[in-house]
Structures are given as C-alpha cells and as structure tokens.
C-alpha cells in the first residue's frame, strides 16, 4: 500500500511519468511475495488452511495474519517472522524503477528523504506508514477531522484492494462543494451518524469495477453493471456497519441506487476523496447531508 502512495508522490513531483508508474506497479504486484506463500514455503500452513483464511477475509475486515492466528494456524511469533521476510512494497517499487532505468539510486534516495521531510515524518512514523497500516496512512494523507470517516475510508481502501484492484492510489481529499457526475452510485447510512456514501465514476471505471467485482465480462448498458457496482458498495457498507456494530454503534442503511448524469451538492460535512485504479480515476463522496439533482 505504501508503495502505491509513494509511487503517486513520485508522479506528482514529476520524478516519473504515469506510464512508468503503471508499469512499475504492475511489475511490483507480480514481484510481491504474499504472506500465504511464505507461510506455505515455511511449512507453517497448508494450502487448504490458506484458502480457508482467504475465504474468511472476504467476510470479515481482518488481515490474513490476524485470521490465521485466530484459527491457530500461526503463532504471533511465526507471523512476525513471515512479515519480516516479506519485502517492503515501496522497496520493490524502487527496485523496479531503478532496474528499468527510470530512476537512479541517488534519485530514489533523494525522493525518499524529500517525502519524509514534506510529510514531517519521524523515523517511527515512517515505519508505521511503510508497514501499510491503512488507518495511519489515511490520517496522514487526508485532512479529515471526522474519525468515523477515517475508519470508513481505511476500510474502503482495503475493500478496493480485496475485491477490485491491488494497485490503488489515493490523492489528497478536498471539501465537497459541487461535483458533476456521469455516474453516481450511492447508499445512505442511517442512524447516528447519518452518512451519505457515493462513488462518482466515468463509464470506463464503472464498467471496470463492475466487471471485476462480478467476475463477468460486462458491457455498458447491461443490467448487471448496475447490479454489480451497487452490490460492491452495499457489501462494503455492510462490512462497515458490522465494524461499527462491534464498537457498539448500531446503524442501518437504505438500498443502493445508480444515477446517470447528475450533480452532487454539499449541504453539510461533505468530503471528496480521489482514487486512481488501473482503469482511471474515481471519487468517493462522504457527507452528512447532500443534494443530488
């Protein structure tokens, strides 16, 4: 995860081009050794145990290692050992960029130290960020004062990675004024707090997310496109409600909807968080109150 953010930083600072970043992220994804593979390699877990943990990961918002420990497949010492073995993804990204000749070692070193300075990161904070703790990353990157939104966005990133695309980048959030949407999928969460949740996407990204989530090759206009994108948001919000319920906050939600061309206008507490996946950019919109017209 940090690799993607650091990649985005390199892009924003013009160290590398978008095409170079995409190529490097694709290669980095292939090069990354997963904990499951390491666990099998070390003889700590069997392939059946790995797939059981993967199935559970689809339903509960927990990391592979946490579930494996709960099921007594791994001890915490074994997990620590495996995590230490797993290469840091930003190092893999750096390695690919240097191997391809897009960056020199000196440039990589310079970019890293500028990154730490720009975000005022201590060595300790930098370690947390490197480990890919999404809560810490969201707090660092997004100036959103609402703790519940931070939890929501952290979970959203994890669900994008789980269900859609592992090469996701987030950019700085901004307060919502008015946003024009060619497609808006949304769902209202009700209770205390009320949260409007929406995704603003162009046709290309809509089709990509719907196809990946459904596992079907869909075409624009198919009824399943609406069904799939809506179900993705519904599934994500369902997991969010379970997390909140586990913290003693019971919320409900309305059914999800998809609108074509429309405008989203903030009435109160609205934020926009831009995401980029392989097929393009889309926006997550969170607000207390909103008008869609």
């Amino acid at each position: 995860m940090f690799g993607q953010l650091f990649g985005n930083y390199l892009l924003n600072k013009a160290w590398i081009t978008p095409a170079q970043l995409k190529e490097a992220l694709d290669e980095q994804k292939n090069a990354r050794v997963k904990i499951g593979v390491l666990a099998v390699n070390s003889g700590y877990m069997t392939a059946d145990q790995i797939s059981e943990v993967h199935n559970m990961q689809m339903k509960v918002d927990k990391r592979f290692g946490e579930i494996a420990i709960e099921l007594n497949y791994l001890t915490s010492e074994q997990l620590e050992e495996l995590l230490a073995t797993q290469k840091q993804d930003y190092l893999l990204l750096g390695q690919v960029l240097v191997d391809k000749g897009y960056l020199t070692y000196n440039q990589f070193e310079k970019a890293l130290s500028e990154y730490k300075r720009e975000f005022s990161l201590s060595e300790e904070q930098f370690k947390v960020v490197q480990q890919g703790n999404t809560d810490a990353l969201v707090k660092l990157y997004l100036e959103i004062p609402n703790e519940i939104y931070v939890d929501y966005i952290s979970l959203f990133i994890r669900n994008i990675v789980r269900f859609i695309d592992t090469t996701v980048c987030i950019e700085e959030s901004f307060e919502l004024d008015e946003l024009q949407a060619s497609n808006l999928v949304y769902q209202q969460i009700k209770g205390y707090p009320n949260i409007f949740t929406g995704l603003v996407l162009d046709d290309n990204v809509l089709l990509d997310i719907a196809s990946r989530f459904s596992g079907e090759q869909l075409n624009l206009g198919d009824e399943l496109v609406e069904g799939s994108i809506g179900e993705f948001l519904n599934l994500h919000n369902g997991i969010f409600l379970i997390n909140m319920s586990n913290n003693g906050i019971e919320l409900q939600m309305d059914s999800q909807s998809l609108n074509g061309f429309c405008n989203v206008k903030n009435k109160s507490g609205g934020y926009v968080i831009p995401f980029t996946i392989n097929s393009g950019k889309f926006y997550l919109v969170l607000a207390e109150n909103i008008t869609v017209f």
């Binding site: 989530f213 459904s214 009824e223 399943l224 609406e226 069904g227 809506g230 179900e231 999800q256």
Partner: peptide
Amino acid sequence: DDSSLLRMQ
C-alpha cells in the same frame, strides 16, 4: 435480492 448480480449468481 434487489441486486441483479446476486440473483444471477
């Protein structure tokens, strides 16, 4: 289920 995807699957 209101989702056409879920009904199909």
